[in-house]
């Protein structure tokens, strides 16, 4: 366990242009392939423009919840958390080591502001259903946003949650599907159809276009959960 758990070295003056540099602190690489950065723009827009949560409010019951379900490739997530001051930049070079709080899948007990520990696919969306219900039961109307990958939707647990959330109209729930066409068998007819057929509001945007992502995430459908498919370059590209 690192002893650098003071937040004195957190930075809040970092911007989008710094994210790749922050990722380099973890990977040692100057450049990152599409796969490592597939979630980068969606994550940045969420934390920069959408989510009502900050390092000061990570324990507030009324905070917005962001659940990174696709825990694979979390460097982009850690870079955004560092840029937004949730974790010290100094943590980044320790990535994946025994003393580090930053693993190749995130752990909510080790990282401030991380809502769920992920890694095994298909857990974030079902956990989000319970989170939405629990907040509603307490009269809290915060948003709950889950990020999943297109291949992660292969996991059947997602189908259970998609059907339930659609049928019961969990409108504070938003799913962002980062689609880099990595599902081997694909989704004929489009990923969003899997949601809209169950009553969700669904849109597809360019996953690199910040304004488009923002617009899609800002729109809130009434009495229906929302899915935003953020299409990025194919993993194979």
């Amino acid at each position: 366990m690192t002893t650098t758990n003071t937040l004195s070295s957190t930075r809040t003056d970092l911007g989008y242009d710094d994210l790749r540099g922050l990722m380099s602190l973890m990977s040692g690489d100057e450049k990152h392939d599409f796969s490592a950065t597939s979630t980068l723009d969606a994550l940045w827009v969420l934390y920069d423009r959408i989510l009502d949560v900050s390092p000061e409010t990570i324990d507030e019951p009324e905070r917005d919840r962001f659940l990174l379900s696709k825990g694979h490739g979390p460097m982009a997530y850690y870079a955004v958390l560092a840029a937004k001051g949730f974790i010290p930049v100094e943590w980044l070079p320790t990535f994946g080591t025994f003393e580090s709080r930053l693993g190749h899948h995130p752990d909510r007990l080790l990282i401030p502001g991380v809502e769920i520990s992920s890694g095994s696919l298909g857990h974030g969306l079902p956990l989000a259903v319970g989170t939405v219900l629990g907040l509603r039961a307490q009269g809290i109307d915060s948003r709950v946003v889950v990020l999943v990958g297109d291949a992660e939707l292969d996991e059947g647990s997602n189908a259970e949650a998609i059907a339930y959330a659609g049928a019961t109209g969990l409108d504070s729930l938003t799913v962002v599907v980062v689609d880099n066409a990595s599902s081997s068998l694909g989704w004929s007819g489009g990923i969003e159809r899997r949601f809209t057929v169950e009553g969700w509001h669904g849109t597809r945007v360019d996953g690199r276009d910040h304004d488009a992502i923002e617009a899609a995430l800002t729109h809130r459908a009434e009495a229906r959960p929302t899915v935003v498919v953020a299409a990025v370059e194919s993993k194979e590209a």
């Binding site: 809502e115 769920i116 079902p126 956990l127 219900l133 339930y164």
Partner: peptide, 20 residues
């Protein structure tokens, strides 16, 4: 949640994440 046991357990855990 209907006949959805994975969702049964995960929903319960999600409720716990909010303090219930």
């Amino acid at each position: 949640v209907g006949i959805r046991e994975q969702l049964l357990v995960s929903t319960a855990a999600g409720l716990a994440l909010t303090g219930l």
